[in-house]
Computed example of a mutant assay.
Amino acid sequence: MNKIKCIIVDDEPLAISLLEHYVEKTPFLELVFSTENPILALEYIQNNGSDLIFLDIQMPELSGINFMKIIGSRQKYILTTAYSEFALEGYEHNIVDYLLKPISFERFQKSAIKAQERFSLQNKESRHFFVKSSGQQHRIHFNEIIYIESIKDYVNIRTIHEEYIVLDTLKSMESQLPEGFIRIHKSFIINLDKIKSIGVKRVMLSDLEVPIGDSYRANLLDKLK
């Protein structure tokens, strides 16, 4: 399994430093962003991929509960707080675990392993996901996706049956896809199972050609070994 991409959102600098240290000591976690400002975290998530958020519940600008309501179920959360009375409310959302401050490394590790098991199970069981396109929710099976293309503020999900234009980013899409998908260009993610042939600059997928970015080619060839 790939590393779990983590974000830390906490209005206490010392709490952030501690969690950053814990993440660094955990081999299967990768810190991609940390901030005291939940608004900056919202902006980051809108433009980048992540898997797991270590989220403080009590923050002055935006509470952790309201933060989760805005982001929704596309992220998983480990809540951090000094106030145990928030636990029950927090579990109404997509929560992996609940950490009560001060947080020991042993307790952090238990939560991290729990998250790892959750993601591992999700990757094994997941066969589809839902996207909103043209005002409707559509079920898309991963094995039907040919490629996903970035088009400004939208992505075009091309399947063997049709196309879906979705308000999202390629980074966000990438974080939702299981093994078997790879980014081969700044604007394209492809399904490895749909490759028919590979040229110097292009990949042939069914009857469709997709460009290969120079910086992505080596990783693609490595994945195919």
Score class of each variant (00 low, 15 high):
T26E: 14
I140C: 00
F130Y: 05
L31P: 05
A41N: 11
K5D: 13
D10R: 09
H138Y: 01
E61F: 08
H21G: 13
Y154V: 07
R74I: 10
R217K: 15
S63C: 08
T81V: 11
L52T: 11
L167Y: 14
L167M: 12
D153T: 14
L192E: 03
P13L: 03
H93W: 01
E209C: 13
I189Q: 05
I103E: 13
K152G: 10
I190A: 04
F67Q: 14
K194A: 05
I148A: 00
S133W: 05
Y83R: 06
S17K: 15
V166F: 02
H21M: 12
S187Y: 10
L88E: 09
S104R: 10
Y22E: 15
K196C: 12
S120H: 04
L224R: 13
A87M: 15
E163W: 06
P178M: 01
I7K: 08
E30T: 07
K201Q: 15
K25D: 14
Y22A: 12
N37A: 02
E125A: 04
K186H: 14
G180T: 01
A115K: 03
S175V: 02
E61T: 07
F181W: 02
A15Q: 10
A112F: 05
E20C: 14
L121P: 00
I4W: 11
I198D: 06
E163T: 01
L121S: 08
K76G: 04
Q116N: 05
I148G: 01
I148L: 05
L79R: 09
D51S: 12
K69G: 11
N47T: 14
I212D: 15
N143M: 04
N123K: 05
L224Y: 08
F86G: 07
L79E: 12
F119H: 06
V32S: 03
E85D: 04
K3V: 08
S34A: 11
S120T: 05
I195G: 05
S84Q: 13
N191C: 06
F181S: 04
D56C: 02
K3Y: 09
H185K: 09
F54G: 11
L55W: 07
E179L: 01
L167G: 06
I189V: 07
S84V: 11
D51Y: 03
A115G: 01
N191K: 08
G180Q: 00
L40K: 14
L205Q: 06
N143W: 03
R74H: 15
L88K: 10
M204N: 14
S17Q: 14
H185Y: 13
R74C: 04
P211C: 15
M1Q: 11
L14G: 06
K194R: 10
Y77I: 04
A41I: 09
K114G: 02
Q137S: 04
K201L: 11
S34Y: 12
S206I: 14
D97K: 10
L88D: 08
K186F: 10
L29V: 09
L177G: 00
I146Q: 01
K3R: 15
I184K: 01
E149K: 14
F28D: 11
I189T: 07
L18N: 12
L19G: 13
V155P: 02
E163A: 00
N191R: 03
I78N: 14
Q137H: 03
K223Y: 13
D11K: 05
F142K: 01
N123D: 10
K25S: 13
P178C: 02
L14I: 10
N143G: 04
D56V: 05
L205F: 09
I16D: 09
Y77C: 10
K3I: 09
K25R: 15
C6G: 11
E149A: 03
A82Y: 03
E89Q: 08
